[in-house]
Amino acid sequence: MTTTTTRRSLNGLWTSQSDRHSALEDAQAVTAGSMLASLGVLLLSSAGLLTGGTAGVAFLLHYATGYAFGLIFFIVNLPFYWIAYRRIGLGFCVKTFIAIAVTSLLTEFLPDAIGLAHLQPLVAAVFGGLLIGTGMLVLFRHRASLGGFGILALYLQDRFGWRAGFVQLGFDSCVLVCSFFVASPFIIACSIAGAVVLNLTLAINHRRDRYIAM
């Protein structure tokens, strides 16, 4: 009986269903999504750019205070875990916490591992936005996020049917308005372009009625 139970538990780790991911699939997705997002953050920060959401708030505080982006990003997202737990569920909350922690750590280590001698800001914005958007898309499809406004966007999509990408774009616009205090108009324009790319990636590719696996 013990052997049979153990086999069933092990099979559950990697066996997925049409409407549910396995534990190993979730682990791979959280890791991959976090890696893509942290690489996008590296491109943005190396070019002195900003973005929206809690990452944008972290960028603003990072540029204004000099504190590490990863640490600020982790702290800024702490209040949103309660919303994630209460409104969406424990599994979403745990996976989101892990994704944020991994992304925060990687954003601190990647600059020492990847050297970028020259970055044109607009190119960095487009590719950075695409990488972060793709990373968030992977996380969304496995019921996780990078916290903050992403949690609100997913909740509003599930509750009212509002497209997560467009909801996030509205929040991002508010954050980018604040960037006028820490960046030049050109950098802000490039940052807006990156935010548009990020959110269009989500809006076009993530629909709950097309992708329902949990």
Rank of each mutant, 00 (worst) to 15 (best):
H142F: 15
L10D: 03
L139V: 09
Y85S: 09
Q28W: 11
L42D: 08
D209Y: 12
G128D: 04
Q157D: 14
V167A: 15
A101L: 14
S104Y: 01
M35N: 01
L43S: 04
G129A: 08
L60I: 11
V197C: 13
I204L: 12
V102Q: 03
T4R: 15
C178L: 15
W14K: 09
A99N: 13
F73D: 00
F74N: 05
V196N: 06
I188D: 00
R87F: 14
V123A: 15
W82M: 11
S34Y: 07
M35Q: 03
V76L: 05
L122G: 09
F140I: 11
L10P: 06
L146E: 01
C190M: 10
W82E: 02
N77S: 10
L200V: 15
H142A: 08
V94H: 06
G129T: 02
G150H: 14
V175R: 02
R210M: 11
G56E: 09
F171I: 02
A99L: 13
Y81E: 01
L139I: 07
V30F: 10
S179H: 06
A164D: 01
L42E: 09
A125Q: 04
I88W: 00
I83Q: 06
A58F: 12
W82F: 14
L139E: 03
M136G: 05
V167Q: 01
N11Q: 14
L146P: 00
C93M: 15
T6N: 12
S46D: 03
V102F: 07
C174F: 13
L198W: 08
A68G: 08
R207W: 10
L71D: 08
A193G: 10
F140W: 08
C178T: 00
Y155T: 00
T6E: 14
T134P: 00
N11M: 13
I151Y: 12
L44Y: 07
L10F: 13
V41Q: 01
Y63H: 12
L131F: 15
A124Q: 06
Q28L: 15
R143I: 01
F171E: 01
Q157R: 14
S22G: 14
A29Y: 04
S9R: 15
L110N: 07
R141V: 00
A195R: 02
L24K: 08
F140H: 07
D209I: 12
F186H: 10
S16Q: 11
R208C: 05
F180E: 02
S34I: 08
L119F: 02
A124P: 04
M1R: 09
A64C: 04
Q168A: 14
V196F: 11
I132L: 14
F180P: 00
L154T: 11
N199W: 08
R86H: 13
T4L: 15
G148D: 06
A124S: 13
H21N: 06
R163I: 12
N199Y: 09
F180C: 09
T96A: 12
G52D: 02
V57R: 11
V138C: 02
A195I: 00
A101R: 03
H206D: 11
G40I: 03
R87P: 07
S45T: 08
L105I: 14
C178Y: 11
M1V: 15
F186G: 04
I187G: 04
A101K: 06
L152W: 11
D172A: 10
S179D: 01
R87S: 12
R207T: 14
L42R: 05
R20K: 13
S145G: 10
S34M: 08
S145Y: 07
A193S: 13
S184M: 04
S18M: 08
H142W: 11
L131D: 01
V76A: 12
